[in-house]
Amino acid sequence: MLLIECPHCGPRAEIEFRCGGEAHIARPADPSALDDNAWAEFLFYRSSPKGVHAERWNHAHGCQRWFNALRDTMSDRILATYPAGAARPNITTIEAAR
C-alpha cells in the first residue's frame, strides 16, 4: 500500500486517490488563435519521463480536492505533494528529495 500525503488531510492510502495525469499544463489564453498542431499538443501531448514526474492527483474519497504530486516513475515513490496552484518544488532527482 502506497501512502500519499494529501496537503489537506495528511497521509492516506493510495486507493483514496485518483491520478489525473501530468500537472502544470496551462490552457492557452486564446485557443482560437492556435493552429491544429498547437491545439493537439495542448490536449494530447504529454511527457513520460523516467524519473521525477509532476502529476495532478485528486483525493476522491476524502476531501475531494485536487493537488499536485512529484512522483518517481521508476520506484513509484511520491517525493512531494503540494496544493494546486502552488509552484512546483525544486526536486529534479530522487536524491534531492531526501
Partner: peptide, 10 residues
C-alpha cells in the same frame, strides 16, 4: 476527524 472509506464506504 477524517473523511475516509471504512469498509469501502465513505
Amino acid at each position: 476527524t477524517a473523511v475516509t472509506p471504512i469498509a469501502l464506504i465513505t
